[in-house]
């Protein structure tokens, strides 16, 4: 799998180069800009990690559901619900207690937002892709409404909550001025390692993966597939909610309209690229982070930022087709 990921990255870069040539920019120059802008300095790398953090945690959420055989497209909505709740709680309860309470409430909110999709899938066989997409729309519009009205900061020009007090924010773990390492990325990495261990070593992890691989065989092996589907979907939503809380508490300090640039959708790509091991989430999210951060530098040099999305799209297609081939050749 690692060899394949390397090949994918090379392929993606080739596509990027071709695209740049067509738009009349020197590929070498642009690639240099991309990497300098994302990895070239401690400051740039800090920015890359900041972009990576929400993608890593959200990717983790998508990955758990994926392993139980569910495609949770709803992490975007669960992320927004978590972020709104975290900002709301954080503005009312301050200090470390406020931080913990915000995270907890955001997690519960994300779980509840995902729960209907899990229940409908398990007990009514309604496809989770459809229900989670629908819940995304509801979450998007509903949080827009809240931040335009009830939650809008008094006297604010834009649709935004007030800023959190400094003592209700999560400080950086390391901040040397030039380099900043946030708590979010650490939480993400620890979460990935815990999940990896849980999947490999525990009976519950084994049963969850069995449901994902073959629900009928799981049923005959004494596993309650329906319960596990509901739990996996809720857990996935809870993790997305936590990602929302960290985005508010560690980076943004508030919730506003247009809070997510589509992290929830990029996270689908992260989880798909991660492959068979949860550890794969780390390089996959970092790759997304590099392209996102580097894309900003490209834009500053007159290259449309969208080129990086094209690269990601191409890579996901290639990854999906590699997977498809390995399924076919198994027959």
């Amino acid at each position: 799998m690692n060899g394949k990921i390397t090949a994918l990255i090379a392929g993606a870069l080739a596509i990027l180069a071709t695209g740049l040539l067509i738009s009349g920019v020197s590929p070498m120059e642009a690639t240099k800009t991309l990497f300098q802008g994302s990895l070239g300095s401690l400051g740039a790398f800090s920015g890359t990690l900041k972009e990576t953090a929400p993608l890593l945690i959200l990717g983790l959420g998508v990955y758990i559901a994926l392993k139980a055989g569910l495609f949770n497209i709803g992490v975007e909505g669960q992320f927004l619900v978590g972020a709104t709740l975290a900002a709301t709680v954080g503005l009312r309860v301050q200090g470390p207690v406020g931080i913990l309470l915000s995270i907890l409430v955001a997690c519960l909110g994300g779980m509840l937002w995902a729960l209907p999709a899990g229940l409908i899938k398990a007990y009514r066989n309604g496809h989770e892709v459809i229900t989670t997409i629908m819940m995304n729309y509801v979450a998007g519009r509903f949080t827009d409404f809240l931040v335009q009205g009830p939650l809008k900061a008094a006297g604010s020009q834009e649709a935004s909550t007030a800023d959190l007090a400094t003592d209700t924010r999560i400080p950086a773990l390391i901040n040397s001025g030039a380099f900043e390492l946030g708590w979010s990325i650490c939480v993400g990495v620890i979460g990935v390692i815990m999940l990896w261990f849980w999947m490999r070593k525990t009976v519950a992890g084994y049963e969850l993966q069995a449901v994902g691989a073959n629900p009928t065989a799981s049923k005959f092996a004494g596993i309650s597939a329906k319960k596990i589907q509901v739990w996996a979907m809720s857990l996935s939503g809870g993790i997305a909610g936590i990602a929302g809380a960290f985005q508010v508490l560690a980076y943004e300090g508030r919730f506003y309209q247009g809070f997510s640039p589509g992290y929830g959708f990029d996270a689908l790509g992260v989880a798909l690229l991660a492959g068979n091991s949860a550890i794969g989430l780390i390089p996959a999210s970092l790759l997304f982070g590099i392209l996102a951060k580097g894309g900003v530098s490209l834009q500053a040099n007159g290259v449309p930022k969208g080129i990086t999305s094209v690269v990601l799209g191409a890579m996901i297609l290639v990854a999906a087709s590699i997977r498809f081939r390995s399924v076919k050749s198994g027959d």
């Binding site: 069995a210 065989a217 092996a221």
Partner: peptide, 24 residues
């Protein structure tokens, strides 16, 4: 099980993982 493919094993999994299916 009656239907080995659907009910008895997980075909993509290793023999070792399949050995404990139902006995986990």
């Amino acid at each position: 099980a009656e239907d080995r493919h659907e009910e008895g094993v997980i075909e993509d999994w290793s023999l070792e993982d399949n050995a404990i299916l139902g006995l986990q």
